[in-house]
């Protein structure tokens, strides 16, 4: 699903995610300049976090959907490409991105941790645009739901067509954009620190709740909850534990 520019078919999802990356990069560069930091360091960190995010999101996707993967076709290049093209899990990307952030410190001697607070609003911004892409193509769809706010797809490759569904992707997109505004207010207007904890405490509970309204079947589950819900619970507990701890002087998050 996409639109045509010349002979190229631009998929809606790719369009929205690239739009999100461009908008978030612009915001990041503006903030880095406003805080008098090195733009090259920002580019380096953003690229490393992006690489770690893509690898982490793909690895978690392969782990949670391993039952659906046909191991006998792993030598088939077309099948490998289809596996690599679609299917990522956000929390895997978050973990991969954070790991690469620390690798930035170790390998390139860049004080990456100090950039977390500056660049933090870029994360939910890209995520929000990604969810708009999900809504456009119909993946990550919601449960059947009849109301004035329902979404009904006509030609989706992913969602059941002609059935009113809960707009779970749009809800998450809007919440991500609200988180961006809250983080900007918290970090820039209130001049407070530990924004990463605030981000986790704003995003994870909403993700936990929205998972109950998801209807796409190919998501890993452990017991009553999906993998993302377990990760949400873990993150909430970790963030709450760090919040009650008194921050050391000089720590940013």
């Amino acid at each position: 699903m996409g639109f045509q520019i010349g002979s190229f078919l631009i998929p809606y999802y790719g369009f929205f995610i690239v739009l999100g990356i461009l908008v978030a990069s612009t915001l990041g560069v503006l903030r880095v300049k406003a805080f008098h930091r090195d733009v090259n360091d920002f580019i380096l960190i953003a690229a490393m976090v992006g690489l770690g995010g893509i690898v982490g999101a793909k690895v978690l996707y392969l782990l949670v959907s391993w039952r659906s993967i046909d191991l006998t076709r792993l030598t088939d290049s077309a099948y490998i490409n289809s596996l690599m093209q679609g299917g990522f899990v956000f929390y895997g990307g978050l973990v991969g991105g954070v790991l690469c952030l620390f690798l930035c410190n170790k390998w390139f001697h860049v004080d990456a941790v100090s950039y977390i607070e500056i660049c933090l609003p870029c994360v939910p911004l890209v995520h929000g645009f990604g969810r708009l892409g999900c809504a456009a193509v119909g993946c990550c769809y919601g449960v059947p739901f009849s109301s004035a706010f329902s979404v009904t797809y006509q030609n989706s490759l992913f969602a059941p067509n002609n059935i009113p569904l809960f707009p779970v992707q749009l809800t998450e997109a809007v919440w991500n954009f609200v988180i961006v505004l809250i983080l900007l207010w918290y970090l820039d207007v209130l001049k407070r620190r530990r924004g990463l904890l605030l981000y986790i405490l704003l995003y994870a509970p909403m993700r936990f709740l929205l998972e109950f309204f998801r209807y796409d079947a190919e998501r890993g589950a452990i017991g009553f909850f999906s993998v993302s819900q377990w990760i949400s619970l873990l993150l909430i507990l970790l963030a709450a534990a760090m919040l009650v701890r008194k921050p050391r002087s000089g720590t940013s998050s």
Binding site: F15, Y61, S65, Q85, G86, G87, F88, V89, C139
Partner: peptide, 18 residues
């Protein structure tokens, strides 16, 4: 990215396409 990534955040998209 713009041409080939199908769906971040959506487990199952790749399988559905295959």
């Amino acid at each position: 990215i713009i041409l080939y990534i199908a769906c971040i955040g959506c487990a199952g998209a790749g399988i559905a396409l295959s």
